[in-house]
Design a protein around this nucleic acid. Structure first.
Length: 291
DNA sequence: AACTGGCCCAACCGCCAGATA
DNA sequence: TTATCTGGCGGTTGGGCCAGT
């Protein structure tokens, strides 16, 4: 069953003809669209209002940016998707001239496959299981393990672990510098926004080994209380994320964080999820994160 | 030249929430 | 308060294009 407004009239479906586009553009530019349901009637179109709205917002709007997505746009999509998931409309709001439909299509046709080929789950952005990764087209690629794409260069971070199997001194390589370490904590200085981790060490960096990640320049470790291994901790994470989202912590604010504030939303997201993300070196080079 | 399979993307579908009668 | 209307959103579909055979 279609929309209610569609049942009232004989409507045309399928691709729009140039003539229909002309009619719609002419009508909207002169009269606006106070009510989409009345647009087809007054514009002389055999379409439902919903179809008109979709055609206008996704294709005819004059402020739309045409053409392929830039690398920067791709970075933004990946980053926001990691936080918000499939909230295409929210993601699109941060990409001027792009529609939710466009972002969704780009994700499904391009980014999704790219992430999978890098051994990442496109939904969670986590590492796929080793079996799944072995099926990827890059089975033995060198990996980079990054805490967050927004990790601040020249900042000191603390990795707190509850397992001795996680031994940062043997894992974290340049461009990071180990500042101090003990049995369960390692403080290290990051010179860029990437941490290099040998492929064979990755297993030691799985989420269960990491209880807390904080930037000493951004957050006090006591500000984030994550009790890993506690039942329901994932639910708490989701709840916390939802709270933050409801508080209006969208990217209009996040951008401010990235640009000037010390608060690192991406890092906090990593904290909330208590997990690392692995990327292929080539892939990362290609992306060239430059926040 | 004809066929086929994969991919892209515009458009549709169904659901939901807010507005209005 | 309830029913209906409307706009918005995310998931899905299918037509057209293109490369490979």
């Amino acid at each position: 069953m279609g929309h209610r407004c569609c049942s009232k009239q004989k409507i045309k479906r399928g691709l729009w003809s140039p003539e229909e586009d002309d009619k719609l553009v002419t009508y909207i530019t002169t009269h606006g669209h106070k009510s989409w349901s009345s647009v087809p009637k007054f514009a002389g179109l055999q379409r439902c209002g919903k179809s008109c709205r979709l055609r206008w917002t996704n294709y005819l709007r004059p402020d739309l940016k045409r053409g392929s997505f830039t690398a920067e746009e791709e970075h933004i999509i990946i980053d926001i998707h990691r936080i918000l998931g499939n909230r295409w409309a929210q993601i699109a709001k941060h990409l001027p001239g792009r529609t939710d439909n466009e972002v969704k299509n780009f994700w499904n046709s391009c980014i999704k496959k790219k992430l999978i080929s890098q051994g990442l789950d496109p939904q969670t952005h986590n590492l796929l299981s080793s079996r799944k990764r072995n099926n990827s087209s890059y089975p033995n690629s060198n990996s980079i393990l990054i805490l967050t794409s927004q990790m601040t260069p020249n900042a000191t971070y603390l990795v707190e672990t509850t397992s001795q199997t996680f031994s940062p001194p043997s894992i974290i390589q340049t461009p990071s510098t180990i500042v101090s370490t003990n049995q369960y904590q390692t403080s290290f200085h990051v010179n860029s926004n990437q941490l290099y981790v040998p492929e064979q060490e990755q297993a030691r960096m799985l989420p269960e080994n990491i209880s807390n990640i904080c930037s000493s320049s951004c957050l006090d470790t006591t500000d984030v209380e994550m009790s890993k291994n506690e039942e329901g901790s994932q639910a708490q994470v989701e709840e916390e994320k939802e709270k933050m989202y409801e508080k209006g912590m969208d990217f209009s604010e996040m951008n401010g964080c990235f640009e000037g504030s010390k608060f690192d939303f991406g890092l906090l997201e990593s904290v909330l999820n208590s997990e690392f993300i692995s990327h292929d070196i080539d892939f990362m080079d290609e992306l060239a994160w430059n926040f």
